[in-house]
Simulated scan of single mutants.
Amino acid sequence: MTTAKIDLKQYIRNIPDFPKPGILFYDISTLMRNADAWQIAMGRLAAAVAPWAPDMLAAIESRGFLTAAPLASRLGCGLVMLRKPGKLPGKTVSHSYDLEYGSDSLHIQADAIQPGQRVVVMDDLLATGGTLVASVSLLRKVGADVVGAATMIELTGLGGRGRLDVPVKTLVSYDE
């Protein structure tokens, strides 16, 4: 079978009622532990992101780290981390944002991005888009030219893509 015919959804485990009742969790750990499927997924992400010619990938804590690190290596670009408060050493810049259930904030090291660098923001999942929107805002605050966003999974029924003002690439979609 050619890689074009591989359905990556068959490697993503669905776990009902996690982390709380009523939530259907899409577990990429089952994809990652299958060496062939993981290589195919990374190849497809690389093909999707490469046309944006990023200087840097910005990985959202923590599952975004899992996709961004191998992808940055494949693309030959740098990697920066967007983290929760108190997780990065040195001076940081933060951005607070509202969620359905409260608020949160993301931080980046103040010197992580050079003004004008082309950046693609990476996470494992696009749902309502709140975290990705906040990430784009934070990256722009430190001078990044955010050229796109990429995720492994998109829950299309939650409308997150429509909240973003950058192009978005995803590998698999679910109508949730």
Results as ranks from 00 to 15, higher is better:
K91A: 15
L88Y: 08
I113H: 01
G76R: 09
A134G: 06
T92G: 08
R140C: 06
K87D: 03
L66K: 00
Y97E: 03
L79D: 01
P115T: 14
K84S: 10
V93I: 14
V136S: 01
G116A: 15
G116V: 09
G102E: 06
D104I: 05
V133L: 13
Y101R: 09
V121P: 00
Y97H: 05
L126H: 04
K141S: 13
P85F: 06
M81V: 11
P85W: 07
D98N: 13
S73Y: 14
L75C: 13
L125W: 04
G143A: 13
L138W: 03
D123H: 06
L139W: 03
Q117V: 15
R140Y: 02
A134L: 07
D123S: 09
S103I: 07
Q109E: 11
S94W: 02
Q114A: 15
G116T: 12
L126R: 03
G143H: 07
Q117R: 14
C77D: 01
L125Y: 06
S103D: 05
P89F: 11
L82T: 01
I108F: 06
L138A: 04
I108G: 04
A69W: 00
Q109M: 14
G76L: 13
Q114P: 01
Y101D: 04
R118G: 12
A127C: 04
L139V: 11
D124W: 03
A72S: 14
Y101K: 08
K141H: 12
A134S: 03
M81F: 15
Y97L: 09
S94F: 11
G86K: 03
D123F: 05
A68V: 03
L71H: 07
G143W: 09
A112S: 14
G129M: 06
S96A: 14
L132C: 02
S105V: 05
S137L: 12
A69V: 10
G143Y: 08
Q109F: 11
L66V: 15
G78F: 13
V142S: 02
I113D: 02
S94A: 14
I113F: 10
A110P: 05
K87W: 09
I113Y: 02
P70L: 06
L99G: 08
S105E: 10
L82C: 02
V119C: 11
C77E: 05
S96Y: 00
G86P: 05
K141Q: 13
Y101M: 12
L79N: 05
G102K: 04
L79K: 05
K87P: 10
A72D: 03
T131M: 07
L82S: 01
L66Q: 08
Q117Y: 14
V121T: 14
R74S: 10
T92W: 11
V80L: 15
R140P: 08
L126K: 00
L106C: 11
I108H: 00
K84H: 09
V120L: 10
E100R: 08
G76S: 11
L125Q: 02
Y97V: 04
A68H: 03
H95K: 06
A110W: 11
S105Q: 11
L125C: 08
M122D: 01
R74A: 15
V121W: 02
Q114S: 15
L82F: 02
T92M: 04
P85Q: 07
I113V: 15
L99D: 01
C77K: 02
V142L: 06
A72P: 03
G76Q: 04
K84V: 12
A72V: 07
V136L: 02
L106N: 01
G102A: 12
G143P: 09
G86N: 07
A110T: 10
L106M: 13
A127L: 10
P70C: 06
D104G: 12
